[in-house]
């Protein structure tokens, strides 16, 4: 049996027979590969471009400066880039404007997590989740779960005080059992959660 792309795809989607599965796993286990396996640079470039095209066609992004906009498809990228550039320009020229206004990011109708690219942060809103964010006032409310990545240091309301979320770090924000209660963990702190909760988050937020 030859291990080819079709077989590997069937393997990864769980459609293999037991014999095929064994064949693939033996192949993966085989540490005796021989020959020059270097990928030529031109092939790498082509492959990179194909990957990006394939990935980008599947991405739903949004630049959402205010309430009420629906997610836009990638084919509107031109508009999105234009909007992003405009927002960035305004933010740069007039810093007090940066992040003003409340963003309501509603993914409650979706069974998949969804990335929203905002001017001050990126956020992955989990399936059946909804976020209300105003980085000017430090408001960060969640129904369900989300991943929050600040593009600059952001102060967020936390209990009676404020909590600094650092630029470039990844945070997990989880809705608690009591109304309005939520938990924030950095990616490094996730390991301290009960294992079952870590697994559930990894599964739901596909990380």
């Amino acid at each position: 049996m030859i291990v080819n792309k079709q077989l590997l795809e069937r393997y990864h989607t769980g459609q293999c027979t037991a014999e095929e599965r064994k064949c693939v796993e033996d192949w993966l286990d085989d540490a005796t590969l021989e020959g020059d396996l270097t990928v030529p640079e031109p092939l790498k470039t082509v492959a990179r471009r194909h990957i990006w095209e394939a990935v980008s066609s599947a991405i739903v992004v949004e630049e959402q400066p205010g309430r009420g906009l629906r997610p836009v498809r990638w084919r509107w990228l031109g508009y999105a880039i234009g909007a992003a550039a405009s927002v960035a320009l305004v933010c740069w020229l007039w810093p007090p404007m940066a992040g003003s206004g409340e963003d309501v990011l509603d993914n409650r109708a979706n069974a998949m997590p969804l990335w929203y690219k905002q001017s001050g942060y990126d956020v992955l809103v989990g399936e059946a989740s909804r976020a209300t964010i105003d980085i000017r006032t430090g408001k960060l409310e969640v129904e369900g779960n989300l991943v929050f990545r600040p593009k600059r240091d952001i102060q967020i309301q936390n209990g009676d005080g404020m909590m600094l979320l650092k630029r470039g770090e990844t945070y997990f924000v989880l809705e608690g059992a009591q109304l309005g209660n939520r938990f924030i963990f950095s990616s490094n702190e996730l390991t301290f959660l009960p294992p079952a909760m870590q697994r559930k988050l990894k599964q739901e937020l596909t990380i």
């Binding site: 792309k5 990928v39 095209e53």
Partner: peptide
């Protein structure tokens, strides 16, 4: 997953096996 993504993932896999 598209074929191109898969092909490149495979290429990476092969390169990483070689490194290993």
């Amino acid at each position: 997953m598209s074929g191109a993504v898969y092909a490149f993932a495979l290429a990476l896999l092969i390169v990483s096996c070689r490194g290993d």
